[in-house]
Design a protein around this nucleic acid. Sequence first.
DNA 1: TTAAAGATGTATTTAATATACATATATATG
DNA 2: CATATATATGTATATTAAATACATCTTTAA
Lengths: 148, 148
Amino acid sequence: MQLTQYTDYSLRVLIYLSQKPAQTLATITEISDFYGISRNHLVKVVHSLAINGFLETTRGKNGGIRLAKPAAQIGIGEVVRSTEPNFEMAECFNHQNNTCIITPVCSLKGILSEARNSFIATLDQYTLADTIQKPGSLFRSYMQAINK
Amino acid sequence: MQLTQYTDYSLRVLIYLSQKPAQTLATITEISDFYGISRNHLVKVVHSLAINGFLETTRGKNGGIRLAKPAAQIGIGEVVRSTEPNFEMAECFNHQNNTCIITPVCSLKGILSEARNSFIATLDQYTLADTIQKPGSLFRSYMQAINK
DNA sequence: TTAAAGATGTATTTAATATACATATATATG
DNA sequence: CATATATATGTATATTAAATACATCTTTAA
């Protein structure tokens, strides 16, 4: 049971942006260089984050991206729900493909649903503002160096 | 975020066995026919369930498998923990492969861990005995037909 | 001795995900 | 208006984990 790298990268982008001085733009290249990950992959991650309203993008020269709202208003659960392609824990969650013959009398789906819901409910208790420790940190140092 | 079919099949085997009259043996072929799934795959599922102490196997003619303990003593959480190959929610859960530069100052791992733990804690509230509704059910009918 | 059961190791297939590549579109600036 | 620099978009390819198939071994009751 894992999240996709797509979700991981989505969160990393948001965390990165949350540490930039307010209103300043970052670029995808800057972020992919910072983390040492595929720029091409990040392009799609950023695009979907924008579509889902988590960040604003500006094309063209001097363009870039920034958070669409304060970090404290971006819930981790929201983000994960929008980036994970599939929360169907077992075959029986998918009406169309399900072949399990006991589905009508089996409570497993309900149990797994409840577990999945408590997973997401836990994430809903946190926002982007909870992800980075306060000043003096390594991250701040990196960011300061980069923002020069 | 999904469980593997391996885990799904493991649970199906246990559920099937929980509905057999006490002490009687089922065979892998019987179970794979019942669900209409790969016998080869089930062989490995059954083997690992046996290694993990959930069922007893008997080789040779008239052999087969049965639960190693009462259904009410087999926790769903236990089973899932033993069958899922990987509970590392993101790259930063794996010390060896992790390349995420912000790990030392990032709380995401803690948040995702907490969510994962509440997922498993929910499963720990249920046992195999909670998975099938009581008599009169479709499953009982199937099983009765098969046990003739 | 044979048939029927699980045990084990290896190879192959499949599907989802990740990555790369090519090109389009937008925009600031000289 | 031309150019440089940014995101947008679609398609193709590569990679990986998981699922499945195949072959053979071991055990045991009759």
